[in-house]
């Protein structure tokens, strides 16, 4: 399954691991922050609707 990477295996694999980790990090941070703000906005909107109604 693993391709033959020869003597540069460490370099190639670490480059992929580092990059995927960084990309995963920014994706995760963006989604988490998005979910947090959405949740807060929903709760504030619900509060406002109650107050209005």
């Amino acid at each position: 399954m693993m391709p033959e990477l020869g003597k540069y295996a460490v370099e190639v694999i670490s480059a992929y691991v580092v990059s995927v980790a960084l990309l995963g990090g920014i994706v995760w941070a963006s989604l988490r922050e998005g979910a947090r703000v959405r949740r807060e906005l929903r709760s504030v909107e619900a509060r406002r609707d109650r107050a209005d109604g």
């Binding site: 391709p3 033959e4 990477l5 540069y8 295996a9 190639v12 480059a15 992929y16 990059s19």
Partner: peptide, 10 residues
């Protein structure tokens, strides 16, 4: 060698 594979990210 195989380091050329890094190009797909770099």
């Amino acid at each position: 060698g195989s380091t050329v594979k890094i190009i797909y990210i770099h």
